[in-house]
């Protein structure tokens, strides 16, 4: 994020159009993919990520440390995904803990065991689901996950442990 440091040195607002494009190129795809672990519809994932960009952009001048930007974006995406899921009528109509895979959509991941694992992940409580997504998709450390979710590192460990235990239990027949 050299552009942000440079902008600070020059006393200018770091969030120029060029800066937005740089942030976009560096993070957009991985954020959409992160959201896709929590939300089925990729179009909705993109909406969530775009809204996260808008929120962070509009608060840009208050971001003082450039190395926190990815954490802010990830946090905004997870918050957006959580809000979407809570409002989702689909969740209301399909309350089973491990839904059957729906044929057709997302053929790459929605085949056989992968679909069941993904469905089981999405059925976990918010924090467990988010901790596992950050840990196993982005390979973040407990401290980095704690920073994004604004919880303690100990809580991250607890959520990860419980989430994995639940997955193991629900996917026992895949062994």
């Amino acid at each position: 994020m050299a552009f942000m440091a440079r902008a600070r040195d020059e006393g200018t607002t770091p969030f120029t159009a060029d800066a937005l494009e740089s942030v976009y190129l560096a993070h957009y795809r991985s954020l959409v993919r992160l959201a896709s672990l929590l939300i089925d519809d990729v179009g909705t994932c993109e909406e969530v990520v775009q809204d996260a960009f808008v929120r962070v952009w509009r608060r840009g001048p208050t971001l003082q440390a450039d190395d926190r930007l990815p954490a802010y974006l990830r946090s905004a995406v997870l918050n957006g995904a959580r809000s979407h899921l809570r409002r989702s009528l689909v969740a209301r109509r399909h309350p089973q803990l491990v839904p059957e895979p729906s044929p057709g959509a997302d053929a790459g991941a929605r085949t056989g065991d992968h679909a069941r694992v993904l469905a089981a992940l999405r059925s976990l409580p918010d924090r467990q689901r988010e901790v596992l997504a950050l840990r196993y998709y982005l390979d973040l450390s407990e401290a980095e996950i704690a920073d994004i979710l604004r919880i303690s590192a100990g809580s991250v460990k607890t959520h990860a442990h419980r989430g994995l235990a639940t997955l193991a239990d629900r996917l026992e027949d895949l062994r």
Partner: peptide, 15 residues
């Protein structure tokens, strides 16, 4: 299993 499923899901998602 989780890593494999996550890889399969995310590799098919593009902007």
């Amino acid at each position: 299993r989780l890593r494999e499923a996550i890889d399969a899901r995310t590799s098919g998602v593009e902007a």
